[in-house]
């Protein structure tokens, strides 16, 4: 039982770290701030979630477990708020999203 739990938690921690890494890679490699936001969002959701799940499987103290769950719940509520605030502020400042056609917004999708 213990060995299976260990294996599961290691797999979870490793894949969490992998998702965090890929998300940050997106932060570096994607073309503009709006698309980079999606990479950062990966870190906040599945990356953090899997990492914490792995730690959750390693602990036996229920107080520690609750705090870990709180961290994930907190990220789940704050991450969309910061993403939205950032996207809104960037749009308001006049920054246009990068598209295939260049930094322009077509007629049917004008910025607000």
């Amino acid at each position: 039982m213990g060995a299976v739990l260990d294996l599961l938690s290691w797999a979870s921690i490793l894949s969490g770290a992998l998702f965090i890494f890929i998300g940050t890679l997106g932060l570096l490699r994607l073309p503009d701030v709006f698309s980079r936001m999606h990479g950062a969002g990966m870190t906040d959701t599945l990356g953090a979630g899997l990492l914490v799940l792995g730690m959750l499987l390693q602990t036996t103290d229920w107080l520690v477990a609750i705090k870990l769950v709180m961290i994930v719940a907190f990220l789940a509520f704050t991450s969309p708020t910061t993403s939205h605030a950032l996207a809104r502020a960037a749009l308001k400042s006049g920054l246009m999203p990068w598209t295939r056609a260049g930094r322009e917004v077509s007629k049917e999708n004008p910025p607000s």
Binding site: G23, F34, M37, H38, G39, G41, M42, T45, L46, A76, S79, P80, T81, S83, H84, A87, R88, A90, L91, S112
Partner: peptide
């Protein structure tokens, strides 16, 4: 709804009218 869109990676809500 807007927060759920933002929470799923790949889509971000940038404004609401």
């Amino acid at each position: 709804y807007a927060n759920s869109i933002t929470l799923t990676p790949g889509t971000v809500t940038a404004g609401m009218e």
